[in-house]
Write a protein that binds this DNA or RNA. Structure first.
Length: 298
DNA sequence: CGCGGTCAAGTGGCT
DNA sequence: AGCCACTTGACCGCG
């Protein structure tokens, strides 16, 4: 098991997602931002290794406007050595990496332009992992998208786009994650049947939106969609409800008892855990201690 | 230098 | 009808 956190390290005084407004786009600004982002990413990865956190989600903002038409610069070539070096560091420390394209990536949108933009974004994010030289256990996770009042049709539209429009380099990394209101684990299993994509399982979304499967059974169902030699072991997002807040809001700090209970419930199941908790590495560090105390982590 | 408005992009649930 | 949340705030102009 590896444990990590997404995108941002709050202990370090740098961000790996520096950007700028579209109105102030320039090649110089782009190059300067990417340089700073990759330098910060290096520091974050080093911090993670020092603290035993071997699962990390790269921010979508590493390369500003990477999939926007304004950006015609060949940043792939310019930064290839830097990406390669980062990838070598990741591999030499046996880290697991994911990326999570944001909510604007909707493969089953009825709007063709939205689909085209979504594919361009997936190509960008996949190319970051490719440039790093990471194998296909490094994943891109997206949600099922909208239902548009007719979920079966929307699911089929997703599968059609998957088969007819996605490059192989994206398909090799793409995973679907159950979301908290539209596409439950069962819906994702349908998508898995239609496409072969593995399912990234989110325990908190499952608590918000499911068909009643007990947590252990749900983890096992998702785990079965991962081909070990192609995909690696199950990736999971872990979180819990912020007490007193509206349903679906992520907690600020890890609730240690709930995390302990989750590990007890999933004993013997292999997975890597991404802690989607607001305070980032602070909770990831606590989670690592708990997992160690339960013999789930060295 | 701190604050508030705004920023490439989508969708659905809540108030 | 508009706001909010979502895996993640950061930028920019103004006082």
């Amino acid at each position: 098991m590896k444990i990590g956190y997404p995108c941002i390290n709050e202990s370090l005084d740098c961000s790996s997602s520096r950007t700028f407004r579209l109105a102030s786009y320039s090649e110089e600004r782009l190059i300067s931002s990417v340089e700073q982002n990759l330098a910060c990413l290096r520091r974050i990865l080093e911090y993670n290794v020092q603290h035993g956190m071997l699962f990390f989600r790269l921010t979508s903002g590493l390369v500003p406007f990477a999939s926007h038409q304004v950006n015609t610069y060949n940043w792939q070539e310019h930064f290839q050595p830097t990406f390669k070096s980062l990838g070598d560091y990741i591999k030499s420390h046996n880290m697991r990496i994911s990326m999570h394209p944001d909510q604007f990536v909707v493969l089953n949108s009825p709007n063709e332009q939205t689909v085209r933009n979504s594919i361009a974004e997936l190509v960008y994010q996949g190319s970051v992992l490719d440039l790093m030289g990471l194998d296909t256990t490094a994943k891109l996770q997206i949600h099922g998208g909208g239902a548009y009042g007719d979920k079966p049709t929307a699911l089929n539209r997703f599968a059609d786009v998957y088969h007819t429009q996605l490059p192989e380099a994206v398909k090799a990394r793409l995973c679907v994650e159950n979301d908290d209101r539209t596409y439950s684990l069962q819906d994702c299993l349908v998508l898995h049947e239609l496409t072969g994509m593995p399912i990234i399982f989110d325990n908190f979304h499952h608590e918000c939106n499911s068909n009643g499967e007990p947590m252990r059974e749900a983890v096992q169902l998702a785990s079965q969609t991962w081909q070990p030699d192609r995909d690696g072991i199950l990736m999971m997002d872990y979180s819990s409800q912020a007490p007193g807040e509206r349903k679906g809001k992520h907690v600020q700090n890890i609730q240690e008892q709930l995390f302990h209970d989750f590990l007890a419930e999933t004993e013997g199941l292999d997975m890597d855990l991404m802690l989607e908790i607001k305070d980032k590495e602070a909770s990831a560090l606590k989670a690592i201690e708990i997992a160690r105390s339960m013999g789930r982590l060295k």
